[in-house]
Amino acid sequence: MFTQLFGNFLLRKGVVTPEQLVTAIQDSAESHVKLGTLCIHSGLMSANEVEKIYVLQTHRDARFGEIAIEEGYLTPAQLEDVMEHQGPRYLILAQELIEKGILTHDELEVLLVDYQNETELYDLDMLDEQKDQLKKLVLNFCEQSGISRDDLVVDYLQLLFNNLIRFIGDDFTPLNLIQFNHYNPMICATQMITGNYNLGTAIDMSEEVAIEFASRYAGESFTQFDEYVSASLEDFLNLHNGLFIVNVSNSTDMELKLEPPVELGNEIYAPEGSTYLLPLSYTFGTVNILVTLK
């Protein structure tokens, strides 16, 4: 569940460009993690040992696991164990980047250690229920973008990631937050949260992406862009913002209000305040989230 931020970690480290990351995420939808990558992740084999087996495989017709046992890198029990546990999902992305020649096994080995140290999580997929850990990841993400840890927007983004996973799917990676003044929308729904805390919110994507987004959100198979597809953007935003307001009301004395969601059309989006664009790279395309701090 927390693997979405691995792609963002790679961006911050400068080891991938946003374009390379988006392509790798989209291409990784159908991929599986190779045994060598799993062995590096679990610490059973070094990157050099994995590379050596890949070279050996070019000379002989044998499976990775067989050679690893013959070479004494793995015991049969370790092989069985690593094959049973497919590892966290971010390894699929890592694998895709290796196959595209963007990362080497050596670089991945170092990056995995750095990532795990930064997040203090060793097996991200085992900790689905631990919201504190997700908050830590989101805090880290906001701090990189200069947003105060005390701002409610941290809670907003934490819940947003939860709701995206819950209602759309976990196959996304947030790219870096971008601050801007004017935004040229595609298919865009906006909604204001008002009261003692004011937040402008919007969701934007292309028609093609909206069709898949709506299909996942509504549990239907939309094949063309229509009013139901368009409404699903407003619905998701309204649902997420509503749940945010409920959470704020339960944890503080603050009663916030929601304005009705509005479809933006072709107008330029330029709300007052500091607006951040958060592109989320899904395997089916990019979903843009916009938040405006007043």
């Binding site: 209602f167 309204n238 649902l239 913002n241 509503g242 749940l243 307001i245 409920v246 009301s249 339960n250 009663e255 929601l258």
Partner: peptide, 24 residues
């Protein structure tokens, strides 16, 4: 509604609604 805060539920019931269902 998705806005199931205690305040909104109370306001709805006081206004005469018979029940409140939280979206989703």
């Amino acid at each position: 509604s998705s806005v199931g805060t205690q305040g909104q539920i109370k306001a709805a019931i006081e206004a005469g609604a018979k029940d409140f269902i939280q979206k989703p």
